[in-house]
Amino acid sequence: MSDPAVPADGRARDRRRTPEALAERYGERVQVSESSGEITADVQAGDWIDLLEFARAEGHEFFDWLTAVDDPPDGFQIVAHVFDPVSHERLLLRTRVSRADPRLPSAVGVFRGADWHERETFEMFGVVFEGHPNLVPLLLPEGFEGFPLRKDFVLAARVAKAWPGAKEPGESDHGSPSRRKTLPPGVPADWGREGG
């Protein structure tokens, strides 16, 4: 049976457990947690690229995905998932950027696969990845305004026409008592009113 610390090419890696390696390198600047076999490392934005480079050097060579999570009111959490094909260890890397100026250095220089993920995150959340080689829209039609995965983005279709599918109780034409009409989640109370 082969040793999981020795890759197929025969070069042995100096393997430490990832949480200890992260704590040794970053000290108080990293928060490490483990849940269901997945390790999560949270760092400040200034350590983001260094964290990605360190994870890759430690054997997490497979870049899986990168995205953002809108975390109002302060900003966005940027999340990347990488994988070690030798040890089969998964690592979730996270940092935060402010809502007022959502900027982060691009990870494309560390993982080329981050290219489209950063473009999508830029387009959907408005996070600017500085140094990205081609930070242009990827999915939305030309001229689209706004960032549709932000929690404050108003889905106009929910207001303009009835939502498809089953109606809420009391909204059918079957004589049931009606309840107060409300706007869909995320739609401001005065949205769509003339003069409002």
Rank of each mutant, 00 (worst) to 15 (best):
R25I: 03
G27V: 05
R29I: 06
V30K: 10
V30G: 05
Q31K: 14
E34G: 13
S35N: 09
S35I: 14
S36P: 12
G37K: 11
T40L: 08
A41S: 14
D42K: 15
V43R: 13
V43M: 05
V43L: 10
A45R: 10
A45L: 09
A45G: 12
A45I: 13
G46Q: 07
G46F: 12
D47T: 12
W48G: 02
W48K: 09
W48F: 00
I49P: 04
D50L: 12
D50A: 14
L52Q: 10
E53N: 14
E53S: 13
E53C: 11
F54M: 03
A55L: 09
A55P: 07
R56G: 03
R56L: 01
A57G: 13
A57Y: 09
G59K: 06
G59W: 02
E61T: 09
E61G: 06
F62T: 12
F62I: 07
D64W: 10
W65Q: 06
W65S: 12
L66H: 08
T67H: 00
A68C: 07
A68S: 02
D71F: 15
P73T: 10
P73S: 15
D74Q: 15
F76E: 06
F76D: 02
I78V: 14
I78W: 02
V79Q: 05
V79W: 10
V79C: 05
A80Y: 10
A80S: 10
H81R: 02
V82Q: 04
V82N: 01
V82Y: 14
F83Y: 14
P85M: 14
P85S: 13
P85C: 15
V86K: 09
H88I: 06
H88M: 13
R90Y: 02
L93T: 00
R94A: 00
R96N: 04
R99F: 06
A100K: 08
D101W: 01
P102Q: 01
P102H: 14
P105Q: 00
P105R: 04
S106P: 08
V108P: 06
V108G: 00
V110M: 01
R112F: 08
W116I: 00
H117C: 12
H117G: 09
R119N: 00
R119E: 01
E120M: 04
E120C: 03
T121C: 04
F122R: 06
F122T: 07
E123F: 08
M124V: 11
F125N: 05
G126I: 05
G126Q: 01
G126E: 03
V127Y: 02
V128T: 15
E130Q: 03
H132S: 06
P133H: 11
P133K: 05
P133C: 15
N134Y: 11
N134S: 13
L135M: 05
L135H: 00
L135N: 00
V136N: 04
P137I: 11
P137G: 05
L138K: 07
L139E: 08
L139K: 15
L139Y: 10
E142L: 12
G143E: 02
G143H: 03
F144Y: 04
E145R: 08
E145A: 03
F147C: 13
P148H: 11
L149A: 07
R150G: 02
R150F: 03
D152W: 07
D152I: 01
D152S: 07
V154D: 05
V154K: 11
L155W: 09
L155Y: 03
L155Q: 07
A156F: 13
R158F: 02
R158H: 08
R158M: 14
A162L: 14
W163K: 13
W163I: 09
P164Y: 00
